[in-house]
Simulated scan of single mutants.
Amino acid sequence: MERMVGTVVRGLRAPIIKEGDDIARVVVDTVVQAADNEGYNIQDKDIITITESIVARAQGNYASIDSIAEDVVKKFGDDEFGVIFPILSRNRFAVVLRGLAKEAKKIYLMLSYPADEVGNHLVDMDVLDVKGVNPWTDVLTEKQFRDYFGYIKHPFTGVDYIEYYKSIMEEYNIDFEIIFSNNPLTILNFTKNVIACDIHTRFRTKGLLKKYGGQKIYGLDDILNVPLDGSGYNQEYGLLGSNKSSEDRIKLFPRDGQPIVEKIQREIKEITGKTVEVMIYGDGAFKDPVGKIWELADPVVSPAYTKGLDGTPSEVKLKYLADNDFGHLEGTELKKAISDYIRNKDDSLVGEMVSQGTTPRRLTDLIGSLSDLTSGSGDKGTPIIFIQGYFDSYIK
């Protein structure tokens, strides 16, 4: 019988992970038990993905606002400083801001507008057009922003993030100013000491600030990139990729993931004789067309993966072949012609018309998005994703 099913994605329910758990052991046991319970076989080139959250939880990679504040004091002393381009998020940035503000003398908070880096909007672009405001050139004070646009709550969260971030700084009774600009150099008119909070443009931002007169210039990736008094840390990303754990504690992005994915791959091989691929994933890389949010608030989709997931897909567009190269064929002849083409295709199809419309993204980004959409961020309880048939083609 001809095979009718291609890629199959399963969200696997796992125990609640606590600090100190052997995460590799938990993943292996869950994957093997799920296959036994559901009656399917683990095969070569199957993919196991693990959400970054449970890896960090098992590592105990947490930090308090006291640890953040201590690192900030080490870097700035009693100097005032700017905090620029943070994302608008209760989960991602609010607790971080508590840590930045806890021992600060004064903060100049500079927000990008009409939206943050990942698409959370302070104001709609259409409203900017009506008001005659150019976000690429116009620098606004808090009063000017309010005079133009009033008080606007996020449509999904119901939060006015300007007021929310103000309330956090007011809670710590510090002096502060709020500025709106998309030019990182604007902050140098207020202070030469800056924490750049952008994620994917941070290297450019820090480079420009240093080039044009900045003195103490850091990014969130430079804060808690080493442990302080036993705190969690991430040597590569610092506070980037962190999430709220409580009002005064954050979970950091996991570190040292490569030994974990390789251990899982090795143990599955020992148990089943099959070589699977394994990756740790964070946010997928996709955009919400309604909320306009670009999901990728983590510094990378995957901080660790086995070598079989390196690279990009090399696929042909079946409908292009069916409509063009083999448009004169039908039925079994068409199927045979396309199958032969796939079987003999080049390893690289860069620049070839036959690959147009296929997704030119890295495998880890594609699989991470698939995994993130499957597991969600709520109460599904499936932090491990098991994928079969992802590398199959039409001829498999």
Rank of each mutant, 00 (worst) to 15 (best):
K274N: 14
V31I: 08
I338F: 00
I342G: 05
V27K: 01
G331Q: 07
G327N: 09
Y281K: 12
T30H: 01
G273V: 13
V261H: 10
I195M: 04
N37Y: 10
E52L: 08
I48M: 04
V55G: 02
D392I: 00
L185M: 11
E171R: 09
A196W: 03
D288I: 08
I199Q: 00
P15W: 00
L370S: 02
T49V: 08
Q215V: 12
E142F: 11
R90V: 13
K75T: 01
V276D: 09
E295C: 09
I23E: 04
V31H: 05
Y40R: 10
K106S: 07
Y394E: 11
A35I: 06
K211F: 01
V26R: 05
R255V: 11
I195K: 03
I384H: 01
K244A: 14
W294P: 01
I48C: 07
I195T: 04
L363F: 00
T191N: 07
E236K: 15
I395N: 05
G150K: 07
E80V: 08
V276E: 08
G60D: 08
G82A: 14
L109A: 09
P184S: 04
G207S: 12
D175C: 04
D229C: 07
G230C: 11
L363H: 04
I54W: 00
P313R: 01
K319L: 12
V276L: 11
V72M: 05
I48V: 15
E333Q: 14
V226G: 05
A24E: 10
V118C: 11
Y113F: 15
E52C: 11
L188W: 03
Y320S: 12
G214D: 04
M125L: 15
P135A: 11
G273D: 14
H121A: 14
S314H: 01
F93D: 03
S348A: 09
D21E: 09
I338N: 06
N91H: 12
T49D: 00
G241P: 07
N344W: 02
F286R: 00
Q33R: 15
D346M: 10
K105M: 02
T49S: 15
E262K: 14
V55Q: 03
P227A: 12
